[in-house]
Design a protein around this nucleic acid. Structure first.
Lengths: 356, 356
DNA sequence: TTGTATGCGTTATCAC
DNA sequence: GTGATAACGCATACAA
């Protein structure tokens, strides 16, 4: 592989000139420049980014550590991150790591990334690495939390208002007449999930309803675990009117459990979901859900990070709260889009169920 | 940030000794070793991976360039890649780039990655960079294609047998009595999609049915475009009995179009899909689909790549073909899981439709 | 307008 | 068992 020295030799100039041509960092006589460019083309020279990184003390690479890219929320978040990065500098990129919500793995990932000298890190913290992260930002190192805040760690954060969004969708359930509302809660020690439970409690409280611990079922944060938890909910006697699922995995599990039990949503039990899906409009029941601006969250995370990286801004963490959208579809029993069709739909569903 | 020199000074040894302690690359007296380790801890020393990469001429980072991580197939593929990488070496990682099936962007991405001196590349080629890729492997550079082969580029490839999988699922459609089968085909100049169309044609031919160009609708490879294409299919007169969708985006678009038209799948039109979804069991209609072993494909891609990287194997590309699975559910009209419930289901669906 | 030479932090060769 | 030092390929301060 050709080096800058080879190019210099072939063009009959010094390495400094070659470097300056490549980086447009000082005036070079047009004719010289052309000779250099020609040599670069002839030799198929490609600048060595590693040597460059060593010299400049920056890599042009950031770390992106999320729970699971296979979850559409994180996938969209990452797409937003990539989009923003590309816009700012096409030579910038990111190393992705999935933690599966495991704190030990999160820590390992970050250690490796730090050794690779990433310029910054966007993280959806799994919870459990407070001291480690606190230490990290105090170096200081550019770090942005996405989706979740970490109490005691004063880093930039981009998230949504999980409390109020949850309050809204549980209110919606209440408005539709549901009273016994179960909560299918991901067992994750993170702010977003806790906040969603808080919103649930607040909505119940506003409505003068008691908080019933027996209606709160926790689940591991994978679909298989959520299916099990969903079964537990369906075994509650009497059957709850509705279930509020705190993230996409919980929703998938709940729907699967409902289907396996040959029950019908929303007739037998309503489901409200945190997190929307791209296919929510294409299949049945159409999910009533809180949609997060995942892509925009990614973009904002990058902006915050670049900001930290550039000016070596070292002040307090800034918290960005983006707004969510409640998409009222049919899984809670609000068949708004089917004019006058509610009774027929119910009937159809009954027939459907009786066929099982 | 502390360097190896700082550590050496503090421990009262040479940098060579420190390096050897870190890398366990030669015997060091226990007492010396402990002093070094203590100094490392005291100074919070962390080896500089950039300098190390420069010296060793390898980065421990590979490139992963896919069409769109938001598509569950690619997400699973990437998870498989990460899993295999982690197993082989926890310090290995990958830079991810999404091309959105754009050849120019693919090329740009790879250029940037090469400048960063990735050790190898796993690519789902968008098509259109044959010469560029051919040049790349001839350097030689470790390159593995996933999901798709590129004609004229002799690189390692891991994929499935798209022809026979498609033949099977179209046969399934034919077995169920469907005759006018439309093809919703992603407009992608890649082998996998072309092969799926080939399988479709072969199944028709076997059944003595003509290939009707008017039943083949091409669509841009995004959901929005696929919805439009789905509308075109639904406007064909008379309505086709069934549609075979060549990838997940097509399926999402088709289902959305069916829903928007207030039609019912499978009663009004059957849908067979290439690519399964994690939620296919949780929502209705349950999709009859070809499931690809995306995770395993990622793992195998890594193995092939490591192999190339290690021994500097320069021979012909090896092609790995993994097997798919046809999941017969209900979207084609084969209600196998609902014993004797077919008539009731039909009736229910009719009631449902009449309510719209 | 161009060139020379230093150093980024590490690994590895050679010497002791 | 340990140390001195030469690269790795580049960017840049300083010279000319």
């Amino acid at each position: 592989m050709a080096t800058i020295h080879d190019v210099a030799a072939r063009a009959g100039v010094s390495v400094a000139t070659v470097s300056h041509v490549i980086n447009a960092s000082r005036n070079v006589k047009t004719e010289t420049r052309d000779r250099v460019l020609a040599a670069i083309a002839d030799l198929h020279y490609r600048r060595d980014g590693v040597a460059r990184s060593l010299r400049r003390n920056k890599t042009g690479t950031i770390g992106v550590v999320v729970a699971d890219i296979a979850s559409s929320f994180f996938a969209e978040l990452v797409r937003g991150i990539e989009s923003a990065i590309q816009t700012i500098d096409p030579a910038f990129n990111y190393i992705l790591s999935n933690t599966d919500e495991d704190a030990a793995r999160e820590r390992k990932c970050i250690d490796v990334l730090l050794e690779k000298r990433i310029d910054g890190l966007i993280l959806t913290p799994a919870g459990g690495n407070e001291a480690y992260l606190s230490d990290l930002i105090s170096r200081p190192f550019p770090l942005v939390f996405a989706d979740r805040a970490v109490s005691g760690v004063d880093a930039d954060t981009v998230a949504v208002d999980n409390v109020s969004a949850s309050r809204d969708i549980v209110r919606h359930l209440l408005d539709l007449g549901h009273r016994r509302i179960a909560l299918l809660k991901a067992r994750l020690p993170v702010s977003s999930i806790n906040d969603r439970m808080t919103g649930y409690r607040e909505a119940l409280h506003e409505a003068g309803l008691p908080f019933v611990p027996g209606l709160v079922i926790e689940s591991g944060s994978k679909v298989a675990a959520a299916v099990e938890a969903g079964r537990v909910i369906l075994a509650i006697d009497p059957l709850p009117d509705a279930v509020y699922c705190t993230n996409d995995f919980m929703t998938l599990g709940m729907m699967r459990a409902i289907h396996d039990a040959r029950l019908n949503c929303p007739r037998d039990i309503a489901v409200a979901a945190f997190d929307d899906f791209i296919w929510a409009n294409s299949f049945r029941p159409q999910l009533t859900a809180i949609a997060q601006p995942a892509f925009a969250m990614g973009e904002h995370a990058v902006r915050l990070l670049i900001d930290r990286m550039g000016e070596h801004r070292t002040g307090h963490g800034v918290h960005l709260t983006l707004s969510t959208e409640m998409l009222v579809r049919e899984s809670c029993g609000a068949h708004r889009t089917i004019a006058g069709g509610r009774r027929n739909l119910r009937k159809a569903e009954e027939d459907l169920a009786s066929g099982n």
